[in-house]
Nucleic acid binder design. Structure first.
Length: 799
RNA sequence: GGGUGGUUAGCUCAGUUGGUUAGAGCGUUACGUUGACAUCGUAAAGGUCGUUGGUUCGAGUCCAAUACCACCCA
């Protein structure tokens, strides 16, 4: 055969060509009628407005490695792609875009806004999936779904109604986390606590019958909403005040002093003001003492323009009000002390401002009820966690789960299927007509709110397979096999999928959860937009190629963070070059060879041939074992060791002499080497295929396809252990040791590897059958037996 | 305050059930362009495995305590 690969490798050219080839043939389509075992993976749907970042690259490349492997093992693979509507994130982008065009989004009707957003989504959304293409990943592209498309929206509505009817979704007025910037409720998960430098204010409340009680608070501006002052019932110093009345400073409002264990005698003064409408703990105290929550803040966190707020403070922003209140309390001579203090402050993750506990009416999911069967299923071991310790994290959250606030005061998302009549009665139904029917024909108004984005993503594993319809896909592919995702959405997404999956489908949605770490920058810092230390995967692909990036990403051991640097990606480039060059070497020695007819029996081949085949067998077993455990890191390491250390560094050196001096070895020996090279190179290409799919495809098409047929390497069988390759090759250790010693001696004696050895002495126990390959590996002309390894250099002699 | 993970070579990290001399990549040094490969090869230097104590014939690995780092929850 005569195949010329060309001296230089151009990864981007190869990748562009192969990508086009893959896109034109739907190689990765699943087959719902297949007789093969199904293997199903859900792509965590990226935000439709998003841009590819390293986290996506990690998820998707890792998933792709497993999907390609499974496909090559004969599985019917369904990798379901799609995007998420990302309620808040998208709404913000669209509103910003409108503002830029001089349109006030708040002046538009709901329909106008939605029209605009859909148009915007069609034009600019979804480019992230195109970006994913570049990485060479293999979801079933034609099955792409969007969380707000018709089918998925129908699933959301159906589930909401079902849960409402079964009492698992309810509407209630209670304290929720409120983002004053976006003016919507947010769930507990969307709140992050930041430690801030703040003040702890100590001041006196006058008592109705004379004297004072000193309290301490970090939020003096909420005092207009105070309903009580609490003292611990066993607080010896203060308990004599329980039952008396205090007067809120700057007002003449009287409030009771009550006994409650919430007031820690060790903290502050031991007396705390109770503002049930503006603090979660105070809310509980209020419930215990039957206090009326009085809300003194507007949705944008200004003091209300009404009683009980004194006129002076009405309409003030919460922080301006704090300043004014502190000044006025000080002026009134009531302030006793101001301390510096680190205050844990709850922030709205999306809004970036402190949230306010706000008394509003919202929709909730009774998460506790949904969690119980999840806990049971996980305890039964139905879900595998990788790494295992994530089990505890997941379970402790599940066991302490709280009601999930699912309504959002936004307009982009799934509108809640609830309608109200004039009397405020609620009708929950799949359609407006049905709701009107329920009401007996009244005029109804639809609930203006939308659902938390994670509500629809929680249905993803079955809604994308066709639920609520009873589709063959749903039967065949649910529950899904594997999810590769970041640990930071374990509660947001994974927990919800588990709850909905069991509730709707009666079974867990995913069998194995593989939580990966973060891709950090070279210094170990988290990549973030604000720090500007993020690396665009597409830039990396442009510089080094998608295969190199994939190779880098697969260095992430299960569950651990990895650090990105161009240097690390270059390792991938080096591998590609090495593979290219060794293929050239192999082809250069196969000119007199045609892989037709029968290969010589393995046991008849020289020991080094049998040795490399037996090493190959070990490697294949190791790689398969690890990939079966979804451990691509250790799988790839095993291939690397075989490819670099065993094949390139040793075997290739051992056989060179057979090609250089065929007359000394005979045609059979040369043919054995050729057959062995042919086999081993093919196995290496196959083993690496899931990791570096572009280059391996290119090499396969150029070298092996003409003989094997088929269209793509990636639908050929993954290399398998071959019992015929296991023969006794223990003598090889003699050769390996001798050559290692020769190389060391060369360095000690400052003799380059280029200089041939005239005579090499090897220990007498080295079998003469190894002399040929030792001569080749050590670059020696003659070989004799002696006491220890020694040599004489040709021409110049020893230096 | 509660929890989880980590601490191994100059740097970034492997090290499976305790078992000879603890590995890799990068970096460093030396030599070398040889008929796959200078986007390279060969070799070398470099580690009391955070600390202390324990179990054991034997501990990077198991147990206890402790220090520091990171993350999660409150």
């Amino acid at each position: 055969m005569k195949i010329d690969l060309g001296k230089n490798i151009a990864p981007r050219d190869i990748e562009a060509r192969i990508q086009k080839f893959w896109d034109e043939n739907n190689f990765w389509d699943n087959d719902v009628n297949s007789k093969q075992t199904p293997f199903c993976v859900m792509m965590p749907p990226p935000n439709v407005t998003g841009n590819l970042h390293m986290g996506h690259a990690l998820d998707n490349v890792m998933t792709d490695i497993i999907c390609r492997y499974k496909r090559m093992c004969g599985f019917d693979v369904l990798w379901q792609p799609g995007t998420d509507h990302a309620s808040i994130a998208t709404q913000l982008l669209v509103e910003r875009d409108l503002s830029k065009r001089g349109i006030n989004p708040h002046a538009l009707s709901l329909d106008e806004k939605l029209n605009y957003a859909w148009k915007w989504k069609e034009e600019k959304g979804g480019q992230i999936l195109n970006q994913l293409h570049v990485l060479g990943v293999t979801p079933v592209w034609k099955r792409e779904r969007f969380t707000m498309d018709d089918g998925l929206s129908r699933a959301v509505t159906k589930l909401f109604v079902k849960m409402y009817r079964e009492g698992l979704i309810y509407r209630e007025k209670r304290l929720v986390n409120w983002c004053p910037r976006q003016q919507t409720s947010v769930s507990d998960l969307e709140v992050e606590t930041r430690e801030e430098h703040g003040k702890f204010y100590y001041f006196n409340y006058p008592l109705a019958d004379g004297g004072f009680i000193e309290i301490a608070t970090t939020r003096p501006e909420t005092l207009f909403g105070d309903q009580a002052i609490a003292i611990h019932p066993e607080n010896e110093k203060l308990k004599h005040l329980i039952g008396k009345k205090a007067i809120i400073p700057l007002t003449d409002i009287e409030i009771p002093i009550v006994a409650d264990v919430h007031a820690d005698p060790e903290k502050g003064t031991g007396a705390v003001k109770i503002t049930p409408a503006h603090d979660f703990d105070d809310w509980e105290v209020g419930v215990r003492h039957n206090l009326t929550p009085v809300c003194i803040l507007t949705p944008d966190a200004k003091l209300i323009s009404d009683a009980p707020v004194p006129e002076k403070y009405r309409g003030m922003d919460r922080y301006a009000a704090r300043k004014a209140v502190v000044e006025d309390i000080t002026a009134a001579g009531l302030m006793t002390k101001i301390e510096d203090k680190i205050i844990p402050t709850p922030y709205s993750q999306r809004g970036g401002v402190p949230v306010e506990p706000m008394l509003t009416t919202q929709w909730f999911v009774d998460a506790e009820k949904l969690a119980a069967p999840v806990i049971a299923a996980v305890e039964e071991g139905k879900v595998q966690f990788l790494p295992e310790h994530r089990y505890n994290l997941f379970m402790s959250w599940m066991k302490n789960i709280r009601p999930w606030t699912i309504s959002r005061q936004l307009w982009w998302g799934h509108h809640i299927p609830a309608w109200y009549d004039d009397g405020g009665n609620v009708y929950v139904a799949e359609t407006e007509d049905e709701a009107i029917n329920q009401s007996g024909g009244k005029t109804l108004t639809r609930d203006p709110d939308v659902l938390d984005t994670w509500f629809s993503s929680g249905l993803w594993p079955f809604s994308t397979l066709g639920w609520p319809d009873d589709t063959p896909e749903l039967k065949r592919y649910y529950p899904t096999d594997l999810l590769y995702t970041a640990a930071d959405i374990i509660f947001f997404w994974v927990a919800r999928m588990m709850m909905f999956g069991i509730y709707v489908m009666g079974d867990i949605p995913i069998k194995t959860l593989n939580f990966h770490g973060l891709v950090r920058d070279a210094k170990g810092q988290k990549m973030s937009k604000t720090k500007g230390n993020g690396v665009d995967p597409l830039d990396t692909v442009e510089k080094f190629g998608a295969d190199a990036l994939r190779y880098f990403v697969s260095t992430a051991p299960i569950g651990t963070d990895i650090r990105y640097s161009d240097e690390e990606v270059k390792r991938g480039s080096k591998l590609l070059t090495k593979l290219w060059n060794v293929a050239r070497f192999v082809l250069g020695n196969l000119e007199s060879f045609e892989p037709t007819g029968d290969a010589p029996a393995v046991e008849t081949r020289p020991i080094e041939d049998r040795w490399i085949l037996s090493e190959l067998n070990k490697t294949i077993a190791e790689v398969r074992k690890n990939l079966d455990k979804y451990d691509s890191f250790n799988a790839r390491s095993a291939i690397d060791t075989f490819f670099y250390d065993i094949f390139c560094d040793q075997y290739v050196e051992f056989i060179k002499d057979r090609f250089w001096s065929p007359e000394k070895y005979g045609a059979e020996s040369v043919a054995a080497a050729q057959w062995t090279l042919w086999t081993v190179l093919r196995a290496i290409i196959g083993l690496y295929a899931p990791f570096i799919p572009f280059l391996t495809e290119e090499l396969w098409q150029k070298i092996y396809q003409p003989y094997e047929g088929g269209k793509t390497l990636h639908l050929t069988e993954y290399p398998m252990v071959n019992a015929e390759y296991d023969t006794d090759v223990s003598d090889m250790q003699y050769a390996i040791d001798v050559i290692k010693t020769v190389r060391t001696l060369r360095t000690e004696r400052k003799i380059g590897n280029g200089a041939k050895l005239e005579t090499l002495t090897v220990p007498q126990n080295v079998p003469t059958a190894l002399y040929g390959l030792i001569k080749s590996g050590a670059r020696a002309n003659n070989i004799v037996a002696g006491d220890a390894v020694d040599f004489v250099v040709a021409d110049a002699g020893e230096k």
